[in-house]
Nucleic acid binder design. Structure first.
Length: 392
DNA sequence: AACCCGGACAACCGCCCCGGC
DNA sequence: CGCCGGGGCGGTTGTCCGGGT
């Protein structure tokens, strides 16, 4: 607002990049590193704004970019992470090696979002769109669950963002130490691809939370053990960056007797699908007594589970089978296998992949097992990629 | 063959955050 | 402590291209 543009736009070229421009940019960066993006166009002899150069580089020219179709695994990862993270494309990209946030965003908008919509799932909330069917008590709880979950994830993301930034800084300082003096650290003799693609950042430490949760008895055990001495994964709005993982990212280390529950209007999550992060006034402290168990229990329900549970309720009412087993796998499988068809959740056919014989839907042990599966899935996801994720 | 339409994706824009001064 | 610049992020737009009529 009132801010000067990133560069003098007069006389600068816009629109698609020509191969010659790409070559100039590549050659310059390979030789000198990008340094100050603002100064780069002049030095490189490009009639472009520095920002345009940066985008061209990060989204297209960077050597460590995988282009082409997304694999099923990648699609599944995107769907799962989007359920958790929302439109935080950079965070999602962190877990997808060699994919850029822009590419993921485009792919989501053009492919996956539509696929979800076809299934009758709101791409924003990953919930069934037909909320009129969700009027049971269980569903209102599910809606509340999303708020809990969303809020926690929001806080977690903040931590992750910070950690990623720290990783970048560390990486940059490392470059400064190892690289040539001057701005960008990339020795002229070293292929830039290596310099950029290498320096794998340390995985966001916030991921340790999941590991910690999953530790030993897994999430199911964690949930079941909440009444004892285990710490709550409850969201919080403030946390220290330097404290040990769990307490650092969740701010609950020493105060497991306290419980912060998101009690804000569900609109903060349900209406726009993106959780608000500024709702401190929506938080409330509770003592660590029995009611929390239900709160935590709710919190551990993932959007996927929520969506599927919704479906399970629908199916239960219609005396059809309900989902069980690994929610995420089956749900994403359903999505991924559904790219061409119109099988929606409202479809009455009972041959959906997500059906299963053990279907207890709301059954206690199954529920915990589902929780465990869900978090294991996410954990596997985050464990599998960030170490070699590109950091821009 | 020409036109239209929709999908896919590259690129741009505006806002925001953070670090340096 | 406030200002400013650099850079990142997410949303949106523009352009190209292929299929259908």
């Amino acid at each position: 607002m009132g801010r000067s543009p990133c560069c003098d736009k007069v006389g600068l070229k816009k629109g698609p990049w020509t191969p010659e421009e790409d070559q100039k940019l590549l050659a310059y960066i390979e030789e000198h590193g990008h340094g100050s993006w603002r100064a780069l166009p002049t030095k490189a002899g490009l009639q472009r704004c520095g920002k345009s150069c940066r985008l061209r580089w990060t989204n297209y020219l960077r050597p460590d970019i995988k282009r082409g179709k997304f694999s099923l695994q990648e699609e599944q990862t995107i769907i799962q992470l989007h359920a958790l993270l929302g439109n935080r494309w950079s965070a999602i990209a962190t877990h997808l090696p060699k994919r850029t946030d822009n590419e993921i965003k485009n792919y989501w908008n053009t492919h996956l979002k539509k696929r979800l919509a076809k299934l009758g799932i709101d791409p924003l909330t990953h919930k069934p769109k037909n909320d009129s069917l969700l009027s049971t008590e269980g569903q209102s709880k599910s809606t509340a669950n999303l708020s809990h979950m969303a809020q926690w994830e929001s806080a977690r993301l903040e931590a992750e963002a910070r950690l990623v930034r720290q990783s970048k800084l560390r990486s940059t300082s490392l470059h400064h130490q190892l690289g040539s003096p001057g701005q960008e650290l990339v020795p002229a003799t070293a292929p830039l691809s290596k310099s950029v693609a290498a320096a794998p950042p340390t995985p966001p430490r916030c991921l340790d939370i999941l590991k910690a949760w999953n530790g030993g008895s897994g999430v199911g055990g964690w949930v079941a053990g909440l009444g004892s001495d285990l710490e709550s994964p409850t969201s919080t709005v403030s946390y220290s960056e330097n404290a040990p993982p769990i307490s650092a990212a969740t701010g609950i280390g020493e105060s497991s007797t306290n419980f912060i529950e998101f009690v804000g209007n569900s609109a903060s999550c349900d209406h726009d699908g993106i959780m608000k992060e500024e709702g401190e006034e929506d938080w409330k402290l509770f003592g660590n007594s029995a009611p929390h168990l239900s709160g935590v229990h709710e919190m551990t329900m993932s959007p996927f589970e929520s969506a599927l549970t919704s479906e399970s309720l629908i199916r239960t009412r219609s005396h059809e089978h309900v989902p069980s087993g690994n929610f995420v796998e089956k749900f994403t499988d359903l999505l991924l296998n559904n790219s061409g068809g119109d099988r929606g959740f409202s479809e009455s056919g009972g041959d959906s992949d997500i059906g299963g014989p053990s279907c207890s839907g709301s059954g206690g042990s199954d529920y915990y097992q589902d929780n465990k599966n869900y978090w294991n899935s996410i954990l596997n996801l985050v464990n599998s990629s960030p170490s070699d994720s590109p950091m821009f």
